[in-house]
C-alpha cells in the first residue's frame, strides 16, 4: 500500500462526494484522524482472502414478498409539518441555479 494513505486533497475530494465541508482546521484534524484509522484498516491486507466470498447480509430471508394491496397512507400534512420550509402544500427549496451573481 502507498506510503501516504490519505492527504488533505483526498479528504477534500471525499468530503465533496459526501456533501460535507470542513474549515482548514477541521480538514487538518480529519486528515490526521482518517490517516490513522485507514492505517488500521490496512491490517486487513495481511489476511489471505483468496477465493473467500463476500458477506454483505446476514438475514435468513431471501426475498420478502407480500400481496400488492393498496393502503391509505396519505399523511401529506403530517409529513409537511417536518419540512423546514413549505408553501402551498409543497416543500419550498432555494433556487437550484445560483442567482447570487458571484460567478460560481
Amino acid at each position: 500500500m502507498a506510503e501516504e494513505r490519505i492527504n488533505a486533497e483526498q479528504v477534500k475530494h471525499v468530503a465533496e462526494l459526501a456533501k460535507l465541508e470542513f474549515t482548514p482546521d477541521q480538514l487538518e484534524l480529519f486528515t490526521g484522524q482518517l490517516e490513522k484509522i485507514i492505517g488500521m484498516f490496512e491490517e486487513l491486507s495481511t489476511v489471505d482472502t483468496t477465493g473467500v466470498p463476500v458477506t454483505s447480509r446476514v438475514s435468513d430471508r431471501q426475498n420478502a414478498l407480500r400481496d400488492d394491496v393498496a393502503v391509505q397512507s396519505n399523511q401529506r400534512q403530517a409529513l409537511l409539518a417536518n419540512a423546514p420550509e413549505t408553501a402551498e402544500g409543497l416543500i419550498r427549496v432555494p433556487t437550484i441555479i445560483d442567482e447570487s451573481g458571484d460567478g460560481e
Binding site: N82, P84, E85, V93, P94, D98, S100
Partner: peptide, 17 residues
C-alpha cells in the same frame, strides 16, 4: 435539509442547502 430535519440558514442555492 430538504424534506425534514435541520436546514442551514442563508444559503445561496440547492447545493449549499
Amino acid at each position: 435539509g430538504i424534506r425534514y430535519g435541520f436546514r442551514a440558514q442563508d444559503v445561496k442555492n440547492l447545493e449549499d442547502v
